[in-house]
Amino acid sequence: MKPAPFQYFAPTTLDQALDLLERYNYDAKPLAGGQSLVPAMNFRLARPGVLVDLNRVPDLAFVRPGSDGGLRIGAMTRQRQVERDPLVAERAPLIHETMPHIAHPQIRNRGTFGGSLAHADPAAELPAVLTALQGRFRLESKRGQRWLGADEFFVDFFTTALEPDELLVEIAVPPLPARTGWSFQEVARRHGDFAMAGLATLVTLDEQGRVQEARLVYLSVGDGPVTARQAAQVLQGQEPTEEAIQEAAEVAARQDVDPVSDIHASADYRRHLVKVLARRTLRVAVQRAKENGQG
């Protein structure tokens, strides 16, 4: 379990890093926390010819308030820092609630917020959460910068819209609207494992207490974050009663997902968990939305 030979660069400015990505292009792989990439290299499942280590590049790790009332999070911010940041807890409680589910503290100490998003593991928590939150992603290259929404950023199984010369540098999280509740839950064999299924849910109520908007984004049941649009449709404009929640959960399991079997969970069991998670997260999110009536 030794990696195949590779060249290693440790740039000290963003510009140098982007130069290297431009020069080595498809051969290059940025190294952030290394918590997925390095094991994959040791198994020789990933064999980048060039590693561009971002750990010495300044100004990529930060949590800042956004002018819109949301958050700006630097791609190299350690997951543990995001987990403990009071501004995250205040402005993005869904992220705050999710962080402890990501692997183990040792891994979160090294693993980065942006690294997990750029890796786009369909079983990872953050892609689903950022999709639910409609986060925006700032990509930089020598050619310039561009912003992408989560729906555009996540393309497929371990695939994002990042071009080989581009780096994810920052993520913008919009503020939650008033009367919005959230919940993140997952079902994993052991705490810290990749979940057999997980769900990030946001519910916004209107002034009459009906569902103005619901967003349910699953992980581990498809090739990337899976948005349960039809379940959300069921709730739209409805009183969030137990019956409505139950129906939405049924629809999510029946119509929104098409999970596959693996050694830990059959497709049927996953489909069942999809329903269970919808029920459980919707109940919590609705309750929190009611409590957040003041906005």
């Binding site: 064999r189 057999m196 969970a265 059959s266 069991y269 069942h272």
Partner: peptide
């Protein structure tokens, strides 16, 4: 056993 296996056993699948 496993959660998945218990799910299957209960369903009698």
């Amino acid at each position: 056993l496993s959660p998945n296996r218990l799910f299957e056993l209960i369903r009698g699948e």
